[in-house]
Nucleic acid binder design. Structure first.
Lengths: 229, 229
DNA sequence: GCATATTTGTCCGTATGTATA
DNA sequence: CTATACATACGGACAAATATG
């Protein structure tokens, strides 16, 4: 059920030499639904219900759960079940502390040209999407830009950690009332950061990025705190 | 089998409010064996053999595998099984690129006093262990010192990522012939870094740390490359 | 290159314990 | 407090892929 099992060998280019197992496909499907906000924070993922809905056994589903718990997208409460993670203010602050350290340091000491290329592509995609008023894609491009910033550091593991962090962040994005307004103001800022980075003005690029992150953090924190205060 | 299931409630102090599930306990047991080198790189973890040896079902064991695969300690090869990860030179370089960025940036922009306290405790432990010629404990203290450095940044998620990175690194430590000699030369260096950090000489501490990491990387790379060259 | 044995991948049924109405 | 629902964990089964002789 879940998905048409890829024909056979699946030896596509790249690193992925192994056809995904069912648990991996289930995890990917759930991950997508979570970051897209279709499964909102706090939602319980009942084993019986989900396994029948997806057409997989409970054992396989539980393997998928372990993957997503490891990515912090699900939380496990013993004998109660697994739930879509709910981020609180401390979580958001923690994530942005992480991002500030990594992204600013990456820009300050550039080591990989591949990251710059990603940043460039992301800025172009964001501009294009904004012109078409495709706000969701603007958000995607924004995330892509910052993954690119991280890639400047030149560590595959660091990139992966950051991708996981952004998946978590989307749990908070879903709480922001007008998601369009969240990313649009950053389009020009990203372009400016890119230009500074390409001209070798590493310190100024890093400083501008820090301002971006402080601003973004404040917006998300306000949204997570809710209408109160 | 695996381990005496903790009596009942297990509401110890700290964050851990949930009694570990069997899969988590199995994962912890295997993790320990892996980082201690008892399960060496490349070893296959046969499901039937391990599940009977540990007294758990195959399903439960497979859940534990997913946890450790997520931590990069095991690799999954479809229809072949799971194996203890084998690090190559690129892996070691990647890990040290990660460490350089994070640890140096943490020291350069200190944000948490708790991290400094950990560094201080680790230096003391290392000195004490060296005096007793407990070389294994010297290594433990060295790792603790650098986890402390990371903690200076003040992000729980960053700390966790770094702990995972060190678990991976131990796969490579096991390849170094005389593990004693790996950490001992760094005892004085750690103390010096700590002193600079405590005196607020953030830049000099960060620079010294970078030299440490370059040196350590070279040693590990040489060990992983083997007697050749 | 082929037939066979082994191991993984996945499912089902079920007994037990835990939380909640 | 009982009852119900659900998670936990086990063992068995079989197909599919891989390894072996």
């Amino acid at each position: 059920m879940v998905a048409p099992p890829p024909t056979s060998a699946t030896i596509l280019g790249g690193v992925q030499l192994q056809r995904p197992t069912t648990a991996q496909r289930v995890a990917e499907l759930l991950r997508e639904r979570i970051v897209q906000g279709e499964l909102s924070s706090g939602t319980q993922c009942a084993e019986l219900q989900l396994s029948t809905a997806l057409g997989v056994s409970r054992n396989t589903l539980r393997e998928a759960f372990q993957i997503l718990v490891g990515e912090h997208l699900l939380v496990h409460e013993p004998h109660r079940g697994v739930f879509v993670r709910r981020l609180d203010v401390d979580d958001v602050r923690d994530i942005y502390t992480f991002r500030r350290l990594v992204e600013c340091a990456a820009l300050a000491h550039p080591a990989s040209a591949r990251g710059l290329a990603e940043m460039r592509a992301a800025v172009a995609q964001g501009m294009d999407a904004a012109a078409r008023e495709a706000w969701h894609e603007v958000g995607t491009a924004d995330v892509r830009f910052h993954v690119g910033v991280t890639a400047v550091a030149g560590s595959e593991r660091l990139d992966q950690a950051m991708r996981g962090l952004f998946a978590e962040l989307r749990l908070a994005f879903a709480l922001v009332p007008d998601a369009h307004e969240l990313h649009r103001p950053f389009l020009d800022l990203n372009a400016e950061i890119l230009e500074l980075a390409e001209r070798g003005q590493a310190d100024r690029a890093s400083l501008l990025l820090r301002r971006y992150l402080d601003d973004a953090e404040a917006r998300i924190v306000a949204a997570v705190q809710g209408p109160s205060s």
